Simulated assay, not measured.
Amino acid sequence: MFARSPARPLLFGQRHATPGPLHSPGGRLSTRAPGRGAVAGRGRCPCARAGAGFRGPAWKESRGSRVLVCMATLGLIGSGHIGSTLARLAVDAGLDVVLSNSRGPETLSELVAELGPRARAGTAEEAAAAGDWVVVTIPLKAYQQVPVEPLAGKTVIDTNNYYPDRDGKFPALDSGETTSSELLQRHLKRSQVVKAFNNIYFKHLAALPRPAGAADRTALPIAGDDATAKVNAAELINTLGFDTVDAGPLAEGWRFEPGTPVYGTPYTEKSTSHFVDVPAGPAAADRIAEDLAAAKH
């Protein structure tokens, strides 16, 4: 029932080989590119992707090779457990990050200092404007506070889940009429929303990145209505160290929300509903696809 991923190559157990941030002249990826997000082999430079917001390539010496670096930035609207973990992974993979939260940039000074020179703090509007990808990782009840204009035309990755005790009641979600990511998409009419990172515990997210092609590489599900945006999101996820499984449109995002087989449990050493208490363990794309298919309302 699941569509093939629009990214290269395909899903359901196949290894994702979209490019990381390092490549050599002519749009070919460097076989000597370092770092968790770098992918050895051939591929298309993200800078050349139609509609990309990258600031352009720059030369950099790395392990004796002269490589081109896509000057890509991850913007974060929200810098809690998931947001700060993604920021660490992004910096490790060679991306710049702009963090924001609801309390102001000055409250993020310790995290920025920990992350180093690739990180800076700003307002939500500044993070939205700076990001080539922008992750929205705030409580659902605050989704209408996400800035609209600076996100126009961008891929926006939504990590949200609906927790009524935290967010209050949303009748349209309780009835199954719509999903939380569809609410964000309606708010961001000129952006392309992709749901991702919402089904994995932040400590497991931090522990499981692997190089492309690794036998124990973990897969994360995504959902979205725009095929190009899903390619863009899969490129980021690959750069951070994960494969992707396409669950379909945003309307199918419920398949990896709380209470489903894909929520939390696959990413542990042993299957348990108390996944926060268990060390991380890899989950291959085949496993995630099977659990998506088994999900029930």
Results as ranks from 00 to 15, higher is better:
residue 115 L to A: 12
residue 142 A to K: 11
residue 279 P to W: 04
residue 60 K to T: 13
residue 104 G to F: 06
residue 135 V to L: 02
residue 115 L to D: 11
residue 173 L to A: 10
residue 33 A to E: 10
residue 191 S to C: 01
residue 92 D to I: 04
residue 254 W to L: 08
residue 37 G to I: 04
residue 119 A to G: 01
residue 201 Y to N: 06
residue 79 S to W: 04
residue 53 G to D: 08
residue 263 Y to K: 08
residue 289 A to K: 08
residue 214 A to V: 03
residue 237 I to Q: 03
residue 38 A to F: 00
residue 294 A to N: 03
residue 273 S to Q: 14
residue 227 A to T: 14
residue 258 P to R: 10
residue 288 I to E: 07
residue 255 R to L: 00
residue 286 D to M: 06
residue 122 G to S: 11
residue 145 Q to C: 05
residue 69 V to F: 06
residue 205 L to S: 05
residue 138 I to D: 11
residue 58 A to E: 15
residue 262 V to R: 00
residue 274 H to G: 12
residue 25 P to K: 00
residue 65 S to G: 08
residue 78 G to V: 03
residue 132 D to K: 07
residue 147 P to W: 01
residue 75 G to T: 07
residue 243 D to I: 05
residue 265 T to V: 15
residue 65 S to E: 15
residue 121 A to S: 14
residue 38 A to L: 00
residue 53 G to Y: 09
residue 144 Q to W: 02
residue 31 T to P: 14
residue 120 R to A: 09
residue 208 L to T: 01
residue 180 S to F: 04
residue 99 L to S: 11
residue 22 L to Y: 15
residue 236 L to Y: 00
residue 108 L to E: 06
residue 157 I to A: 02
residue 80 G to W: 12
residue 294 A to C: 02
residue 252 E to K: 11
residue 20 G to H: 12
residue 240 L to K: 07
